[in-house]
Design a protein around this nucleic acid. Structure first.
Lengths: 234, 234
DNA sequence: GCAAAAGTGTTGTCCTTACACCCATGC
DNA sequence: GCATGGGTGTAAGGACAACACTTTTGC
């Protein structure tokens, strides 16, 4: 039988835990997938790399906290920010029990020159990162896998590119993130047939080869045409 | 410059929050998707339906907590349990700030007769649930969408069925969860061509029509053959 | 004129879809 | 024998994979 408990009294019996958010901010430059990292403050991790994180305020929504961290650490408003997973191994933090919810964000490196350099904030090539503080290395791996799946299902690769981009740049994003080679002709046909790319009638400039056309992504078209049923496939 | 902070001192400055886990336990019976729910203890929600939840212990991994809740509430060990999302709206709980991490689980109703009936633990047809306590209604919607995506990508529909099942039962699972009609012949061809079904050479019994063959799902075959690259498609 | 990448089409294969008839069982 | 769902094949269309040559630019 329900005991008609008082909510506030009940919650006051719950143990409490420090919460943090960590942001995995992906960027793309020089044909490599990069991630924005800082160096740890903590003595235990003497200068090891960490994700951009901070504790969550007492009455703060985690989404809000992630946006706040992104802004505090980089000065930027979010381009795209999504909750990926919550990590809770009891000994994951040397300072005691801390649960962290991880968000991922994608942005264009060139559009967001780094102005804040606290804790040596810098872009790092994802597959050249050797060692990180806390459990941030496995967290980054989870987020990279998340990104690999995501770019195949949703048009978020465009967030990594300038507003106007060439098909080669787009293909580079896919090849770098998925770590595969794609056939150029088939790749172009695929995107042409989708109908989400607008020809700007502009061309690349200052390239040492034949310039390619520049396109923009037509988000409205995508919203109208996007699929809702994919098909059973595993 | 890093300040070489002490980890424990740093964490002690973080605000702390009560954490819970909630389990969305899906089952399938009488051609309907069902979910296991209890009635709320709380005065505010006088008998409204809630997910199976509990607070997280001080040094407990969230995965462990979810498994514990599943066992405490139903007496069962998990069939399949996966973290879906963490919900943190500051006012989501009338007792004050509570953050909850939601896990989803799928199991076969017939294999797990309910022995515990605390808080009127019962199966409810998912699309006939009118009102729930807390934010559990939107949480359930998120999990239902998660399930719709998941059954198209991974062979988890089998967790909802007996070990030996007919193709009709399998198709019913897909049709009920995705809320679509599928062509019977194409459905059968699809699964036949996958090669993950083993013919048991047994038949349905006590059915009022021609009995269908019974199959088992070959998990080893699946592990060997499963795809790793799906293809760009959005 | 040379290097480097852009641009372009066809063919075969496979997967998906649409669709209709006979069969085995319980009653 | 009748109602109910089981079991089966084929043809057309669409998507994907493989593959080579010409064009444009900077230097």
């Amino acid at each position: 039988m329900p005991e008609n408990k008082d909510a506030r009294a009940l919650v006051s019996t719950y143990p409490t835990v420090p919460l943090t958010v960590d942001c995995v901010i992906f960027g793309f430059d020089e044909n490599s997938l990069k991630v924005l990292l800082i160096k740890s403050d903590l003595a235990q991790f003497h200068g090891k790399l960490t994700l951009l994180g901070d504790n969550v305020h007492t009455h703060e929504h985690l989404d809000t906290a992630a946006n706040r961290v992104l802004k505090e650490r980089t000065g930027m408003n979010d381009v795209f920010l999504e909750q990926v997973h919550t990590f809770s191994k009891p000994d994951r933090h040397p300072g005691g029990r801390v649960v962290t919810t991880v968000y991922a964000s994608l942005l264009n490196i060139k559009h967001h020159e780094l102005i804040i350099h606290d804790n040596e904030l810098k872009w790092h090539v994802v597959n050249q990162i050797s060692e990180m503080a806390f459990d941030h290395q496995p967290i980054l791996e989870v987020c990279t896998k998340w990104l690999q799946k995501k770019i195949q299902e949703q048009p978020i690769a465009f967030n990594l590119l300038p507003v106007k981009f060439s098909l080669r740049q787009l293909q580079n994003v896919y090849e770098a993130i998925l770590d595969i080679k794609l056939d150029r002709r088939n790749f172009r046909k695929k995107f042409a047939s989708m109908g989400f790319l607008n020809d700007t009638h502009e061309m690349e400039t200052h390239v040492t080869h034949r310039p390619g056309k520049l396109y923009t992504f037509d988000f409205d078209q995508y919203q109208q045409k996007k699929k809702h049923f994919i098909g059973i496939d595993f």
